Computed example of a mutant assay.
Amino acid sequence: MDAIETDVAIIGAGPVGLFAVFECGMLRMRSVLIDALDAVGGQCTALYPEKPIYDIPAHPAIEAAGLVDALERQIAPFAAPRLLGQRVERLEGGPGDFTLGTDAGRTVRARAVIVAAGAGAFGPNRPPLDGLAAYEARGGVQYYVRRREDLRGKRVVIAGGGDSAVDWALALADIAQVAVVHRRAKFRAAPESAAKLDAAAAAGRIEMVIPYQLHALHGADGQLSAVEVATLDGATRLLPADVLLPFYGLSMDLGPIASWGAALDRHHLRVDPATAATSLPGVFAIGDIATYPGKLKLILQGFSEAAVAAHAIHPLVFPGEALHFEYSTTSGVPAG
């Protein structure tokens, strides 16, 4: 297959990577999206498409899948090619002349690279329980809620103390029988969400199982019937369950990106916040994979970083050409 020629190769097709297509397009720069997942949207699509997001400007609330759909419409004029279901394994060259190779045998030649890969490849942290795989195969143990309605009328045990555990307990309380298992009374979720959880528990809408941890799974032929939990002192109890949702976070893997020689800070790419540039000339990083003093892991901050990176890349694509900053209300959207 012929190599794809472009101005900017964007690694990662989550919300921030999608918006980078828009920001590059507004500066008349072509881009290509590459993602290991087989659909755009990153974690918003793969992990929580129906989960509402509350801190996107002008949207008091928007479901993750709705945000991805809106971004798709926004970047449609730029017709950026997508290489989905494949991972970038090789990066060669330098500013103005990069060559990227994927594990599917595709080649992309670009003048600059934007890494918007979230925190790299991700997967759930699985609880160490006997027979786990069999229950996963039958849907008794799930790590993501793709359709809230699928859990209507179910007995759902949620394990964990972070935002995902609390948010889904609240989201499912009106349609399912929900029990929340946590090793201590204090939760790591946003204070407002934790307060709502306490209120729901006080109203009898959610059962709080504290201080307990997951201990064993019970059922037959991979069909879950109960979750056994235990205290640190060894006291156990059985919770009737059709579905267990263990929310213990994601295990992150930068994969080949870690071997490219860019400066890292705790498995993140260190960047200059003024340009989003990494220590590798011509390679920029935005979104959750990028770090700098004062960094906030928010989608809206990633959107800002996409604009910063696009403006910093412009001289690499159009050397010697002055960039006159214009508001979109003045310039409009360039034709693709």
Rank of each mutant, 00 (worst) to 15 (best):
P49S: 15
Q177H: 14
K297N: 11
A203D: 06
K297Q: 10
V209P: 02
S164W: 01
A322R: 14
A216R: 15
A64T: 05
T6K: 11
F78G: 13
E72G: 13
L37C: 07
V229H: 05
A194N: 05
V68C: 06
G336L: 11
R270K: 14
P211N: 15
L84D: 08
C44D: 05
R109M: 03
P246M: 12
G287Y: 11
A20T: 06
T231C: 06
A277P: 00
A65G: 09
L172W: 01
A235P: 00
V209K: 09
R183E: 08
E192I: 09
P191N: 07
V333H: 07
L129G: 13
A220F: 03
V8A: 10
A199V: 06
A201T: 10
V178Q: 03
G204C: 12
G294S: 14
D288Q: 05
L250G: 02
L33N: 12
A194T: 14
C24G: 12
A189V: 01
G139K: 09
G162I: 01
G336V: 15
I158Y: 01
A202S: 13
F284T: 08
R30P: 00
P211Y: 14
A203H: 07
R109Q: 07
G118Q: 14
R111G: 07
Q301C: 07
P57S: 15
P15F: 09
Y54P: 01
H311M: 08
Q301M: 11
K295P: 00
Q142G: 02
T102W: 04
G162K: 11
G96P: 04
A200K: 09
L316T: 08
R73T: 09
A189I: 02
Y48N: 10
G140A: 05
A310K: 10
A64E: 05
T99P: 00
A277H: 04
R205W: 01
A307D: 06
D35T: 11
A258I: 03
A36E: 12
E89F: 04
I56Y: 09
F22V: 13
I158A: 01
G140Y: 00
L170M: 03
A194R: 13
Y212S: 10
A201C: 10
E5G: 09
F98H: 13
P15E: 08
D221K: 15
D150M: 03
R111T: 04
A335F: 06
M252Y: 07
V16Y: 03
G234H: 08
S193R: 15
L91V: 14
L300M: 11
A121T: 12
L254I: 02
V32R: 11
Q43T: 08
R183S: 12
L132I: 08
A241F: 01
K154G: 00
L239M: 08
V156Q: 04
D69L: 10
T107Y: 01
V229W: 02
H314W: 08
R30E: 08
S328K: 06
A285P: 02
D38N: 14
P77V: 15
T45P: 00
E50C: 12
G332Q: 06
T99L: 08
V145H: 15
H267Q: 15
E50H: 13
D7E: 05
Q142F: 00
Y292I: 07
L323I: 05
G204Y: 10
D221W: 04
P281R: 15
G17C: 11
A61G: 10
